[in-house]
Every structure is written in structure tokens, then in C-alpha cells.
Design a protein around this nucleic acid. Sequence first.
DNA 1: ACCTGAACACCGTTCAAGT
DNA 2: ACCTGAACACCGTTCAAGT
Lengths: 220, 220
Amino acid sequence: MPKGVKGDVKAGLGAEDVVDTALRMVERDGAEALTMRRLADELGTAVTAIYWHVGNRDALVELLVARLLEEMGDVHAKGPDHRTRVAGLVHELRQRLLARPHLIALADQRGLTPAMFQPVQAALADELAAMGVTGKEAGEVIQILQCHVVASVVLARTLERSRSHEGTDPEVWDGRVSDPALVAALATAPDLDRAFGLGLDALLDRLLPRKPERTRATRA
Amino acid sequence: MPKGVKGDVKAGLGAEDVVDTALRMVERDGAEALTMRRLADELGTAVTAIYWHVGNRDALVELLVARLLEEMGDVHAKGPDHRTRVAGLVHELRQRLLARPHLIALADQRGLTPAMFQPVQAALADELAAMGVTGKEAGEVIQILQCHVVASVVLARTLERSRSHEGTDPEVWDGRVSDPALVAALATAPDLDRAFGLGLDALLDRLLPRKPERTRATRA
DNA sequence: ACCTGAACACCGTTCAAGT
DNA sequence: ACCTGAACACCGTTCAAGT
């Protein structure tokens, strides 16, 4: 039993409370708004009290990322065959990360991106093992898939921040290309979902062992 | 005028000079070290002088990105066939971006990432047109390839910042997976070059029209 | 053990004032 | 037109001091 008894809310705030309201702030006003002084205001304490419980800002962010990560829950595979289960796991990881932009922002801020990898590793490993892919080879496959996910997620965040400069300035094209449909297409924001799905599909074709029988899953 | 100046250059500094020394600072001490006050010190002026020439910090960063981008030069295609030329262009873009981590950091800071796309767009469009891919379709292919590049580059930067937490903490694996070779592989930093190359190759297979001669298992 | 206030060393930005 | 100093509103962090 470390310290503190359950029941009474009482005077002291703990690291838990700090993380709680910090998280609330981040979700309400964005990761940039999380400042030690503002957090102190929200908590109704002096700035310096936070330092006693949490260490410093970096440590706080680390706690927030851990919390957000555990809230993401476990990802489990679904689908008839291994291939669609692996694809499902990867899509699911991406989807959950995209649903938590604060997580990404915070992790990015403190260089905790690799932590975002973890939730699916075990599930992917199981699935691959069932396909006969193990050891170093499985590790590489997992890493490549993770890179695909996180790259897509980080890119999404990066592009999100640049809503002002949408697409390419058409002026750059003067005299270089005379294909109005192309220019128009490039001026549109890229469809990241599509790019991700296409890339994933292509990667799986390369990385997963093909079934000896038939690849066309038209069987009943 | 007690303002000591060397040479017959005009006494005043211009936006050019500000950008010059700002760039020098960024290359020497990193993008984080670029601060208005430090820049003023380096220039030997008051902080506020910078504001007169450049507006504010965001505008300065924008100028820096533009400068860095134009220093990157044009990318032109090489290779015997269209496919290897396209691949070459994409690889070249990634390589040049990776060689300018400051550019990425600055662009990231100010949401100017889309600007990094531009250098290869015209070259890619030419190459695709020569393959018969034009208009909206070409635009989509270009965007997907660009996403692949920038995602890889941004991911590289993100992972670079987290050298402290290398790979996955082995503790997470307790009881979940008992494959030492896999765990070891996951603990290693991912090989981004390999991941990029693999993904690019897979993407090109999907996106580029196949030559009539090389018909594989694809039967109609 | 827990919390406070004051203080330090930074930020970006504005503005009246100087030349 | 070009540059300055002072000032404002912020940061994160430390530390001696209170309870």
C-alpha cells in the first residue's frame, strides 16, 4: 500500500488528479494549451505544486500519453482469414490513433511516437505466427506495417495544421504542365484514407506468404 | 552615424540578411534555437528591428522554408524506362528532403509541409504523361507517391527525436509472446529506408500501367 | 509530506519615440 | 524609412520558506 486511503477526497491532490485535469484541458483546448500555469489555475493550486507531484512538464506529458494509450484498449483480430485479420488490425490501429489527435500531438511533442506502436504488436505477432511467419522475419513485417500506420497518422496531423495553404499554388505550373484536370486534382487535398488503404494492400501482397491453394477468395 | 559598417554596402540590413543569418543559426543550432532575441543578438541589432523587415516569426520561417526549397534545386528523371524514372524521382525527392532536416523541422513548425511536395510534381507529371497517365488519374498517382515520401520523411524526423526510448520496452511482452527473435527484432529501430523502398515498389506495381509484354498471372 | 510566493531566465510582440 | 528601449503578457523551473 503506497499511500493515501480511499474514500475522502480531502485536501491533497495527487498525480492522478493532475493528469485528469491536464487531460481534460488538452481535450478541450488542444495540446498547445497545456501549460503549467494554466493547469495550476484549473487545479486551483500554485504552479509549483504540480512540480512536486509530477516532476516537470515532460514527465506530465509522458503520463498523459500513457493514460491515453491505455484508454485505447486492446485491438483484437476479426475476419475469416489471416490476411483480412492482419489488415483489420492495422486499419483498426490507425483508426484509433486518428480518433485521438491529442495523443498524437502529445507524443509528437515529447518524442514518444514509438509508444503508439505497441497496442497491436502482440495481436499482429499472433496472427503472423498462425501464418507461419515468426522470429526476425515477423519482427520486420510488424515494423513495416507499423511504419505505414504511424507515417500515415503523423502525415495526417501535419497536413491538418496547414489548412491555410490548401494544395499546390497553381502559379507554380505556369508553362510547365498544361493539363487542367491534373492541376485541379493536385489542388485538392490528398485522400489519405485511400492512400493508406492502397499502400497497405500493396504491402500485404508483398509481405504475407501466399496461400498455396488459391489467392482469389471466392470460395464458399 | 556611429553605426559601424564594413564595405560600401548600405548600412541597413534587409530581409535578405535576416534570412541569411537565421538560416545559419538554424543549420548550426537546430530549428528550436531560432529565436527572435537570439537572432537579434547574432545580427547585432535590437529585436524589434527584425519585426520591421520581416513582420513576425511565422513570416520569417516561411521565408526560410522558401529559401531552403529553392536551394534544393530541380529534380530530373534518369533511367532506361518510365517505371525506373518515376521511382528515381521519388527516391531522389525523399533523399533531398532527408538531407535537409532543418527544412522539415521548419515546415513542420509552421504547417508548410505541402510546400515540400512541389519540387517533383512537374517531373512526375511529364513522366506519367509519357506513360499515358494524365488528368485526374495522374493527379491521384502523384499525390499518393508524394504522401508516401512525405510520410516517410516526417516519420523519420519523429523517430529521430525519440532516440532515448529505443524500440519497444521488452517488459510489455511478459507472457504474451514467447518468440525471442521476434522480440529482439522489434527492439531494433525500424529500417525506414527498407520500409520506404518496399512500399514504393508495391505502390508502383499498383499505380503504373503494366507494360503489355509483362503480363503476369493476370488473365482476363 | 505537501504547498506557497518570489525570483530567474527565457519567450513573441507592440508601440511611442528617436534619427 | 529605419531602428531603439521600455513594456506587456506570457513561458518552464528552482528554491527557500511555510505548514
